[in-house]
Design a protein around this nucleic acid. Structure first.
Length: 797
DNA sequence: GGCTCTAAAGTTTTT
DNA sequence: CTTTAGAGCC
């Protein structure tokens, strides 16, 4: 079941350990069983802190652990992302600090997402009279974010000569001023940004030894997955929490898969972890056997990654079958690339009966998904796109969430700015600027000015005053509602009373309909949130609880639809940690992969190469690599050469197809020389080309508009679900009904069909009356405990 | 103050 | 090509 190093890694618990785990080496399984083992050894679940990279990874691991030690135990683990776990700590601790403490925050503080941060920085740049051509908000914010990742505060930043010199070189000497003001404004808005979650946690522990001690004592064992992608702040917090002997901390990762340095991830955290504890040695475990992929894939990956310098040496090997050589497919254009891939998918699905859900198409940038989607749709291949514009980033959803945020925390400046005139109520930019000016001048929140404009010297005409006070009154009612009613009731109230609902539902255009669907889905989400929490016996069902949850959600974390049969499309970054029988890695072109932005720096090229390594090691059986000779970029066609990375793989593992005839048209001489062996496709594809090309020339594909894209996406996501689960009504909140049950009506061993989790088997029942709970093992949703009083399901047998 | 039209910029990856 | 920001007009 486990090999020797895996077993040793699982059992070791005397001190700090580092598990260097090659791709496909069963890293997640080791982590899962280590935690289960710890619990069996007597560690209580709430004394174990397990940090993962995504919420999804955490939930999956949790439900696997539940399968071993039971749902009741697994539920109590501190398991989640760095951000969600530390946010939980901050919500508990920050309100308890003295008000004079700079870290003090009331419990209802907001989390600013990147858009909020960007908008705030932009506003500050404008207020300071800086040129936003030079001070591009994005670059300024990334400097600030960089500083925060390195735990450099605004004050330290302003005092640092080195920082100043660096900013000066970028012609942005005032970044330090922006940083300081940015931080002030966050504080005034009662908000933390993403990076602050880490910075505040570090500072909290650093300046309050008693609080640090409390968590050091609580967390008897700390486990961290994907350690190669942690940043300096995260690393330091781990060191704080595991500072006391015997330093029971276990970090797991693979330096060869470090792909987030652009976000501040520091590979030296894992490379140097062996020296983290001067008073004791860190036990090193190497997992080198790959259980996922064919020998060919593993060897090809090795030959690629060995082109990089500076890594922990390991020799990943596989004992699976040798497998096929890796076809490298060349296409004329991005469209043809998509069509070739579709052709192969159709063949694999039809002749080899590979389910669509075992197939993934990976790409470097989100923009590449368009052409693929269009082609898949034309060929009726079901697909699902992950990432890109997440549900929570749609305008209408952000508007609604902004209302919610304002109702929970009226000081929230970005939320207020966003919706003060949505729907239009005659409060325009001019008035808003005056309010911001007065608020800045008096050092108070926008809300304070808004509720009493004259007190802050606002000169306004009576009409404006009336409109402002009407708005303030409305928000006050929302605040009250959020204090008394649960998230769903309050949410519905806000939607209708704000006029948003009327505004959105009076628009009958295609775009409007798409917005309406999104709003429906949001309300359904609120309903589920309240319903599920009640089912699980939690009473945290208020708007503030809901917001805490959604603030850290990304598209990757959305509901699993793994029961359905669809090809997965995602960026390579999103694919980290996943595996598929068949993987297509697309767009292997110079300037795209490696990306143009990374060409100037050897380090960044190495990171791109690691990214390619991640991509190819996702495949279990079938791996295909493709590139296009031309591709649309900003609407105009551009030609490109095959990626240098193809060359980095030992040619014996690749299948390049036959020699090209001299007459074939080439947009440009190949990277590999004019008599390239690259141009003709792998044998099994070459016969496709002619029919495909004619199709290309007759019908130029039009990129999808955002609405078409959304609705097709929705179609693709949804249809299969509603067919399999007949009474699934998650599409609409309107006809949602709970299925009521008398308690005592189900028994262990019965199968149920849950409204949301699908099919599952009842494995235990405990408690009586209103407290009666069933433990259910779901086919696709893991093991869960449901409070029968609230649970919505029906018994199947 | 609000709406419409035009111009410019943008795509690297995301908790 | 698409999205967004800004100017100009009502």
């Amino acid at each position: 079941m486990f090999n020797t190093p895996q077993l040793e890694a699982i059992r070791y618990q005397d001190g700090p350990s580092l598990v260097v785990a090659g791709a496909g080496s069963g890293k997640t399984r080791v982590l899962t069983y280590k935690i289960a083992y710890l619990i069996e050894q007597g560690f209580r679940p709430w004394t174990i802190l397990a940090l993962t990279f995504t919420n999804k990874a955490a939930n999956e691991m949790k439900s696997r652990i539940a399968g071993v030690v039971g749902a009741e135990e697994a539920k109590r683990l501190w398991m989640g992302t760095f951000h969600s776990m530390f946010l939980r700590i901050l919500r508990t601790e920050l309100p308890l600090l003295e008000e004079s403490d700079p870290l003090h925050f009331p419990p209802n503080f907001t989390i600013y997402d990147q858009t909020d941060s960007n908008s705030l920085v932009k506003g500050i740049i404008r207020e300071l009279g800086l040129d936003d051509k030079i001070y591009r908000p994005g670059s300024v914010l990334s400097r600030i974010s960089d500083a925060k990742n390195h735990l450099v505060t605004a004050g330290e930043y302003a005092a640092s000569a080195a920082q100043y010199q660096s900013d000066l070189r970028s012609r942005m000497p005032e970044v330090r001023t922006v940083y300081s003001r940015y931080q002030e404004r966050l504080h005034k808005a009662c908000a933390l940004d993403f990076d602050d979650i880490l910075v505040f946690t570090y500072k909290l522990f650093n300046s309050h030894p008693a609080i640090l001690r409390k968590y050091q004592d609580r967390f008897q064992y700390i486990l961290v997955d994907e350690y190669q992608d942690t940043n300096h702040a995260q690393h330091q917090i781990i060191l704080q929490l595991a500072a006391l002997p015997p330093h029971r901390v276990c970090v797991v990762g693979d330096d060869a898969q470090s792909i987030y340095s652009f976000r501040g991830a520091d590979i030296s955290n894992i490379l140097g972890f062996s020296d983290a504890y001067p008073d004791c040695s860190v036990k090193l475990f190497k997992l080198e056997q790959n259980y996922r992929s064919t020998q060919t894939i593993v060897k090809a990956a090795n030959s690629l990654i060995h082109k990089n310098q500076g890594q922990i040496h390991k020799e990943v090997f596989s004992e699976r079958s040798v497998g096929l050589k890796i076809p490298v497919m060349e296409a004329y254009s991005d469209v043809e690339e998509a069509q070739m891939i579709n052709k192969v998918i159709t063949r694999l699905h039809g002749k080899e009966h590979i389910p669509y859900s075992d197939i993934a198409i990976l790409y470097r940038t989100n923009a590449q998904s368009r052409v693929l989607e269009e082609t898949m749709r034309k060929n009726s291949v079901p697909y699902c796109v992950y990432g890109g514009l997440s549900f929570y980033q749609h305008k209408e959803i952000k508007d609604v969430i902004a209302y919610f945020r304002l109702a929970v925390n009226p000081a929230d400046e970005e939320a207020l700015k966003r919706i003060i005139n949505v729907p239009t109520r005659g409060i325009g930019q001019t008035t808003l600027n005056k309010i911001i000016g007065a608020a800045t001048e008096h050092g108070v929140s926008l809300w304070a000015v808004l509720t009493d404009p004259t007190a802050y010297g606002m000169k306004l005409n009576s009409g404006t005053i009336g409109r402002l006070s009407a708005f303030a009154d409305m928000v006050s009612r929302f605040i009250d509602k959020c204090n008394t009613d649960d998230a769903e009731l309050a949410g519905r109230y806000i939607l209708s009373e704000s006029g948003l609902l009327k505004d959105i539902f009076s628009d009958t255009s295609i775009e409007g309909r798409s917005r309406q669907e999104n709003i429906d889905e949001l309300v359904a989400g609120l309903h589920d949130f309240v319903g599920l929490r009640r089912e699980e016996g939690t009473d945290a069902v208020m708007m503030t609880d809901y917001l805490s949850e959604v603030a850290l959600l990304s598209d990757m974390d959305r509901d699993g639809d793994d029961s359905t049969e669809r090809v997965t499309l995602m960026t390579i970054h999103s694919a980290k940690g996943l595996e598929f029988d068949t993987v297509f890695v697309t767009g292997l072109e110079e300037n795209l992969f490696p990306n143009q932005m990374s060409l100037s720096s050897p380090n960044e090229i190495e990171e791109e190469r690691r990214l390619f390594y991640v991509a190819i090691t996702r495949a279990k059986q079938h791996l295909y690599i493709s590139y296009a000779r031309s591709r649309y970029h900003f609407g105009k066609m551009e030609f490109s050469n095959p990626s240098r990375f193809i060359h980095d793989i030992d040619a014996q593992f690749l299948s390049m197809g036959k020699q090209q005839s001299a007459s074939a048209a080439q947009p440009r001489p190949s990277f590999f020389g004019s008599r390239s062996s690259f141009s003709e496709n792998h044998a099994s594809f070459s016969d496709n080309r002619q029919q495909l090309s004619s199709e290309v020339s007759t019908r130029r594909l039009r990129p999808l508009t955002s609405v078409e894209k959304q609705s097709s996406d929705r179609f693709n996501r949804r249809t299969d679900i509603s067919n399999t689960i007949q009474n699934n009504n998650s599409q609409s909140s309107a006809n949602r009904t709970g299925v009521a049950f008398a308690t005592g009506s189900i028994q262990v061993g019965q199968h149920i069909l849950h409204d949301r989790f699908g099919m599952g088997e009842v494995v235990a029942i405990e408690g009586t009356g209103d407290g009666e709970k069933a433990t259910v093992r779901f086919e696709n949703s893991g093991v869960r405990q449901l409070l029968l009083k609230f649970a919505r399901f029906k018994v199947v047998d």
